[in-house]
């Protein structure tokens, strides 16, 4: 199996406060890894650091994506190299239409891969096709990015963007929060359909519920900035029953 991501002894802080205190994790192609843990354990920090959020500082350790130094790359290069974050709180961008935003993103990625930009017709056909996957209405194309979207629409819109960009590593940061059961099912089915033997995902969640739909190969428990336990999907059930204190 080919290695996709390797995290070694990763330490990171925000505002001088250390949040990640030595994370180690290896993800191979085709795998789904769930990361669970109590509030404040560092789950969102891990996703922020992997994607290059400038608010966080890496103080030690390394991260390799397909053997290359991920931490040396600018955030947009990481994205073009295939790291995708489904944001816990997707950002509203007034005045920038979904179409313009998505076309710019997709064509920048294609340029990075040495491909020609899509023609407007090809692009719109692709948008329509991927929208169906998430049961998103066409009218969203002309709206500003995430502006006035409901909580469920925002999360679906994240997975829609993932479908458009076809990342090799998708990080889903509490994608289940704020979703009703129908939206959860649509989002999870979207994620499952995007799964290939070459890509992988990291599913960050508080609850077992999402993992009924997106079945992980591994479950990791992150506590106080470190992975303290790793198991298979039954670990999530155990956590649901006993809580994190029961470990």
């Amino acid at each position: 199996m080919n290695e996709l991501l390797r995290i070694e002894n990763l330490h990171a802080s925000i505002g001088g406060k250390e949040i990640l205190k030595g994370v180690n994790l290896v993800i191979n192609e085709g795998e789904v890894h769930a990361i669970m843990g109590p509030n404040g354990a560092g789950k969102s920090t891990l996703s922020a650091v992997l994607t290059g959020n400038p608010a966080y500082e890496v103080t030690a350790g390394k991260v390799l994506l397909h053997g290359e130094d991920l931490l040396a790359m600018e955030p947009e290069i990481r994205a073009r190299a295939g790291v995708f974050l489904s944001f816990q709180y997707p950002v509203e961008i007034p005045g920038v239409s979904m179409t313009n935003f998505m076309r710019t993103a997709l064509n920048e990625k294609r340029a990075y891969e040495g491909k020609e930009p899509l023609t407007p017709k090809e692009f719109l056909t692709l948008m329509r096709e991927k929208k169906k996957l998430l049961e998103l209405p066409d009218k969203l194309n002309n709206r500003s990015v995430n502006e006035g979207f409901s909580g469920g629409e925002k999360k679906k819109n994240e997975i829609f963007q993932m479908a458009m960009l076809e990342p090799c590593l998708a990080i889903l940061d509490e994608t289940d929060s704020g979703l009703d059961i129908d939206a959860l099912r649509i989002v999870a089915e979207g994620v499952n359909r995007l799964k290939t033997p070459q890509n992988a995902s990291i599913v960050i969640t508080h609850y077992q519920r999402l993992l009924d739909y997106i079945v992980p190969d591994f479950v990791h428990v992150l506590a106080d900035g470190k992975i303290v336990k790793t198991g298979d999907k039954t670990l999530a059930l155990e956590l649901e029953e006993k809580g994190y204190e029961g470990l």
């Binding site: 994607t51 290059g52 959020n53 400038p54 600018e74 955030p75 947009e76 994205a79 073009r80 995708f84 974050l85 944001f87 997707p90 950002v91 509203e92 961008i93 007034p94 005045g95 920038v96 313009n100 935003f101 710019t104 993103a105 997709l106 920048e108 990625k109 990075y112 500003s144 990015v145 963007q161 960009l165």
Partner: peptide, 25 residues
């Protein structure tokens, strides 16, 4: 908006292009 800039960068849009989109908007 720094969070909007980062959101766009996370989708592969260069920081310069992201600034341009926000200023134009």
């Amino acid at each position: 908006d720094e969070s909007a800039l980062f959101y766009m960068q996370q989708r592969g849009i260069s920081k310069q292009k992201a600034r341009q989109l926000l200023v134009n908007a």
